[in-house]
């Protein structure tokens, strides 16, 4: 299937860039990224069906169907589908049903991997580093975050599309390889947790204003706590919040309200 090709490197690159920019340009609840998907492949399809208007019409309609994934890691899916479309157009080797079911079967898994790896882990880790560097009001953290994020994700987003095209269906087995996935996920998770812990310690604060007075002696509760361990109270606030969200299943809004009520009571009592 790979020895017969009609698309040049330039065609593939153009399709990849179209995906990279326009994947969600008309994102909507009915088709999600379906229109973006067709946009990405449309140029190559025009070339494949140069003098076959009926074929082009079918191909465009086929690629306008519902599609939704994590667009950065999922860029491999339009890449794979482009290879399948090409082989269908050249000798009808691949049935249209295969193209559609490939696309539908892949979007879920890649949404899962992409959301947890890129959006759910890498982005917050880099943001945490940025927060840490900018905690004193310096712009460097924001700049470092943006630079690192773009430098890591853009090559992935562009490259996976091209790789998806050149590998066709073989690409799937590589990216869903269990061992690779485990190593990448574990490393990222561990680095992330340590860094996030460090950053959280600089951002979450719970200062105790309460003082104990006995005659001339004034004992600040905060000073005592600092001698046990610096930043002890905020750590407790963070861990209790995590416990409530994870084990008690509190929603974001409930926890938000909980923290505000807690702060309100503490201020009223003069403890904080």
């Amino acid at each position: 299937m790979k020895n017969k090709r009609k698309l040049t490197k330039k065609d593939v690159s153009k399709a990849s860039l179209r995906w990279l920019f326009f994947h969600q340009s008309s994102h909507n609840y009915e088709r999600m990224m379906g229109t973006g998907f067709a946009h990405s492949l449309s140029g190559a399809l025009e070339k494949l069906y140069e003098d076959d208007k009926e074929g082009l019409k079918d191909a465009l309609q086929r690629n306008l169907t519902f599609f939704n994934t994590e667009p950065q890691l999922g860029s491999i899916i339009p890449g794979i589908c482009l290879a399948l479309e090409e082989s269908h157009a050249i000798d009808g080797d691949v049935e249209p049903e295969v193209i559609l079911s490939t696309k539908n079967a892949l979007m879920g898994p890649f949404a899962g991997i992409g959301d947890s790896l890129l959006v759910g882990t890498l982005n917050p880790i880099l943001l945490s580093i940025g927060i840490g560097l900018s905690a004193n009001g310096s712009p460097i953290g924001a700049i470092v975050f943006l630079t690192l994020w773009l430098a890591i994700v853009l090559p992935i987003k562009y490259g996976l599309f091209v790789r998806g095209y050149s590998l066709g269906l073989d690409a799937v087995s590589i990216l869903t390889n269990d061992r690779t996935k485990k190593i990448v996920t574990t490393t990222l998770t561990m680095v992330g947790l340590i860094v996030i812990g460090g950053v959280a310690s600089t951002v979450i604060k719970a200062p105790i204003a309460l003082q104990y007075k006995a005659g001339d002696m004034v004992i600040s509760i905060q000073e005592i706590l600092d001698k046990i361990m610096p930043n002890l109270m905020p750590l407790i606030v963070a861990l209790v919040s995590y416990y409530l969200v994870d084990k008690k299943g509190w929603s974001t809004n409930k926890l938000l309200l909980g923290i505000l009520v807690f702060a309100f009571v503490m201020v009223l009592l003069g403890i904080m």
């Binding site: 947890s116 759910g120 882990t121 917050p124 996920t185 998770t189 992330g192 947790l193 996030i196 959280a200 951002v203 979450i204 604060k205 719970a206 200062p207 905020p234 606030v237 963070a238 919040s241 995590y242 409530l244 969200v245 994870d246 974001t252 926890l255 938000l256 923290i259 505000l260 807690f262 702060a263 309100f264 503490m266 201020v267 904080m272």
Partner: peptide, 24 residues
């Protein structure tokens, strides 16, 4: 004062959700 104290503790919310998400 309440806004100040609440604002200092609220980041715990963001980090709690993040922890839930990435702790496996």
């Amino acid at each position: 004062e309440f806004l100040a104290v609440g604002g200092k503790m609220l980041p715990a919310l963001g980090f709690a959700i993040l922890l839930k998400q990435i702790l496996d």
